[in-house]
């Protein structure tokens, strides 16, 4: 009997291969149905749910077919809040896991008819670290921070801000009370992600929400063109200020 030998084998495989493959499959499904998927990431307490509740309600009013999936460790409080908007909303409980994964999106989509959805929002678990690594098949990743959190947050969590497409600064109505240094916040975003578009909003007052909808409309139009979807259905009626019938 010979002694066991050691060999080196090249592997070169992504550790999150399974998630990435599933995310790719989801992305293809979303492209086939023309559903623009937006992944919202932030710390706990930034105001993702308030922002999303208002977004869902106002987009519905404008005739956009929207729905939401929301991730939390426990409780379905957020899905209940989001459902008040009138849009379909589903809660994903991760039971301790600090992020959403593609597999959870896949199973919680269930029997939802994607063909009837223009925009699907995914509210990730409140966490500025872990969700950065997990592709959910989204077309747009939105990193959010509130004026109460400190202007250097993007510098502290560069991985997340760098992985995002757009930044949203929330609770802008409290900026003055918090002595929020707006230029400093923008500079730290620009430092970790040069050229990233930034929108200031107050979900409570409605400030900046029209700018946000216009941004969504533009990004979705670009996405549709990239995937040759304009032959399938009409574009979103979300032009800022215009309330249009479905």
């Amino acid at each position: 009997m010979t002694a066991p030998t050691t060999r080196i084998v090249e592997v070169r495989a992504g550790i999150l291969k399974k998630n990435d493959e599933l995310a790719r499959a989801l992305r293809q499904r979303f492209e086939a149905s023309g559903t623009f998927v937006v992944n919202l990431v932030s710390s706990p307490g930034t105001g993702k749910t308030a922002f999303l509740e208002r977004t869902l309600r106002e987009l519905l009013d404008r005739g956009v077919r929207v729905a939401a999936l929301v991730g939390d460790l426990e409780t379905d409080n957020d899905a209940q809040r989001l459902a008040r908007s009138g849009a379909p909303a589903r809660q994903i409980n991760t039971h301790g896991r600090c992020h959403l994964e593609a597999e959870m999106i896949d199973s919680f989509l269930g029997e939802w008819a994607l063909d009837d959805l223009d925009v699907l929002f995914i509210e990730n678990v409140g966490n500025l670290v872990c969700p950065a690594s997990y592709d959910l098949g989204e077309a747009l990743r939105v990193a959010m921070l509130s004026v109460t959190e400190g202007e250097d947050k993007p510098l502290k969590y560069p991985t997340m801000f760098n992985s995002a497409d757009v930044a949203v600064i929330t609770k802008i109505d409290l900026a003055e009370a918090c002595e929020f240094d707006h230029a400093a916040a923008r500079a730290s975003i620009e430092s970790v992600r040069p050229g990233m578009e930034v929108v200031d909003v107050s979900a409570r007052r409605g400030t900046g929400m029209d700018t946000w909808y216009a941004l969504l409309e533009t990004r979705r139009a670009v996405w549709r063109t990239q995937h040759d979807l304009d032959m399938i259905a009409s574009p979103l009626p979300v032009t800022a200020g215009a309330i249009s019938a479905p």
């Binding site: 009997m1 010979t2 002694a3 066991p4 030998t5 050691t6 060999r7 080196i8 084998v9 090249e10 592997v11 070169r12 495989a13 992504g14 550790i15 999150l16 690594s133 760098n162 992600r193 040069p194 050229g195 990233m196």
Partner: peptide, 21 residues
């Protein structure tokens, strides 16, 4: 914003013990 390296998360290689021959 053009990232050429830095997002890698992969198994490059492994060292394995073969079954005793």
């Amino acid at each position: 914003g053009e990232i050429r390296q830095g997002r890698e998360l992969e198994v490059a290689s492994i060292e394995i013990g073969d079954a005793a021959v």
